[in-house]
């Protein structure tokens, strides 16, 4: 028998529309050399399509992450993502966090420091999870585990399409 699901029946929220970024008016206004800073939306684009480890929905569908939960400072090379597990005792929280971290690790320049945390008050063992997710050694160790890596890769797959 398959192990029981932690949250068998999650609420699926309606997705926000994805408006295309407003281009600079006309091609003439396009400045070849002006840098476009990495911003909230860009980070969110990277992680919104990650699949939930349990369900065939994306993290955005389940409101585990929202655009507002991303803080970014390009100049100081700092990103913080705060995510909200669907239920308080969700044991998948660490997996979700790991997925977020791996995806951002692969998508952001190496200068960035990535901080992943559970939203305060939404998880039973909040501190433990946070500690685990931001401990380099433990993340590295987790990524040595082929089962975990497979699982993470499966979750990340939709976000590359």
């Amino acid at each position: 028998m398959a192990p029981a699901l932690i949250n068998a029946n999650p609420i699926v929220y309606e997705k926000k529309e994805r408006p295309a970024r407003i281009r600079q008016p006309g091609d003439n206004g396009f400045d070849e050399y002006a840098p476009e800073l990495i911003d909230q939306l860009e980070i969110f684009e990277h992680i919104r399509d990650i699949k939930d480890p349990e369900h065939p929905y994306s993290l955005e569908d389940l409101k585990v992450i929202t655009e507002d939960a991303v803080e970014v400072d390009d100049k100081r090379s700092y990103v913080r993502v705060t995510f909200t597990p669907t239920v308080e005792h969700c044991s998948m929280a660490t997996i979700i966090g790991l997925c977020l971290r791996v995806k951002l690790m692969r998508s952001l320049p190496s200068r960035f420091k990535v901080d992943i945390r559970v939203a305060p008050g939404t998880h039973a063992t909040e501190d433990a999870v946070n500690k685990q997710l931001n401990d380099k050694e433990r993340v590295a160790a987790a990524l040595e585990n082929p089962n975990l890596v497979d699982m993470v890769d499966e979750c990340l797959h939709p976000s590359y399409e």
Partner: peptide, 24 residues
């Protein structure tokens, strides 16, 4: 590609992410 991830333009960065995935 890991350097291209830090490109000043957004669309280049996005392509770099995809490409990096393909090569990894």
């Amino acid at each position: 590609l890991s350097r291209a991830l830090d490109d000043p333009k957004r669309s280049v960065r996005q392509e770099a992410v995809k490409c990096r995935h393909a090569w990894t």
